[in-house]
């Protein structure tokens, strides 16, 4: 219990630090929301009036505190550029990025885990060597590049999907889902290659240990040893890695959303940064930080459940 309270305390503290750093970052980079809003019609007088109206004249510390207090009340403010509440803006985008992330994650597990087991069992065989070579190459492909290749091959040559033909989930959920498959593959491929490599190595390492020899000597079959003993131990580093991968998928989806023209949180984040739309940027950063920290917390707890010896 004490452990969980401690974890949650650090969880909140980290979130606050992340938000404060974002506030600071906007102080350093050039650009001003009022100037940005008025564009080429801005005159010093108009800019000054608008800055006053948006409360940008107040010191950073004060703005930060107001934001935190409002956030706790559930008020994330109003987007400078769209003039609509940030919560409304974001709740529309969350399902898109959420599904893309989950789909990528599912692909990573479905491809990485079975392949990892297969190659480790047949380490050294011809097929294993072939898979590991392909794996090595796949790992080196950046998702955005894979995205472009997939768009070209499956979109323009084979015409399996319409490039840029994103369909909103509220219009047609099936169409939306199928459109996300290729972006998810683009994110998942390089990552699952890493999982294969890590898992394979981990299993082979584990199989050399004494308890495996003991298990064999007690008359267990290869599969019995593998599934009954080895995997349980070999999966531990993979779980830690998957938590990192999860955070990485979110980072990757920001880029992939650009490549495939998916209007999710990532694209929203990029344009809000460009427009200096602070309230939107803050809210999205909190969301992302929440998910990243959350997935790490989950991984920690999962590890403890799987192996009670682990001290955290």
């Amino acid at each position: 219990m004490k452990y969980i309270i401690k974890k949650i305390f650090f969880f909140i503290l980290t979130l606050l630090i992340v938000v404060f750093l974002t506030f600071l970052a906007f102080q350093i980079i050039p650009g001003d929301p009022a100037v940005s809003l008025l564009g080429t019609e801005g005159t010093p007088l108009k800019v000054a009036a608008l800055r006053e109206e948006m409360g940008l004249n107040k010191p950073v510390g004060e703005r930060f505190l107001t934001w935190v207090l409002n956030f706790m009340k559930g008020d994330m403010g109003i987007s400078y550029s769209y003039q609509i509440p940030v919560s409304e803006l974001i709740t529309d985008k969350i399902p898109v990025t959420f599904l893309l992330t989950m789909l990528s994650f599912a692909f990573i597990i479905c491809m990485g885990i079975p392949l990892g087991i297969y190659t480790s069992k047949h380490a050294g065989s011809r097929l294993d060597r072939l898979i590991m070579t392909v794996n090595q190459v796949t790992m080196a492909i950046p998702p955005f590049f894979l995205g472009i290749i997939l768009t070209y091959l499956f979109g323009l040559v084979l015409k399996w999907f319409v490039p840029g033909g994103y369909i909103s989930y509220s219009d047609d959920f099936f169409g939306f889902f199928t459109y996300l498959i290729f972006p998810a593959i683009a994110i998942a491929f390089p990552k699952s290659a890493m999982v294969v490599k890590l898992f394979r190595g981990s299993i082979i390492e584990e199989a050399k240990k004494d308890y495996v020899r003991t298990a064999y000597s007690r008359g267990n079959t290869i599969n019995g040893v593998l599934y009954g003993h080895v995997l349980k131990n070999a999966i531990l580093p993979v779980i830690t890695f998957l938590a990192v991968v999860f955070a990485d998928i979110i980072a990757g989806s920001i880029i992939i959303e650009q490549v495939f023209g998916i209007p999710g949180l990532g694209r929203m984040l990029i344009t809000s940064i460009q427009n200096r739309d602070y309230p939107v940027v803050q809210a999205i950063i909190v969301c992302i930080a929440f998910v990243v920290l959350g997935s790490n917390l989950l991984a920690d707890i999962l590890l403890k459940v799987l192996d009670p010896r682990i001290k955290l």
Partner: peptide
């Protein structure tokens, strides 16, 4: 909105 300039031609050709 076609945010990515590289996808304009693809979008036109692909019919979106």
């Amino acid at each position: 909105i076609v945010a990515n300039a590289d996808t304009i031609v693809m979008g036109l050709k692909g019919g979106s």
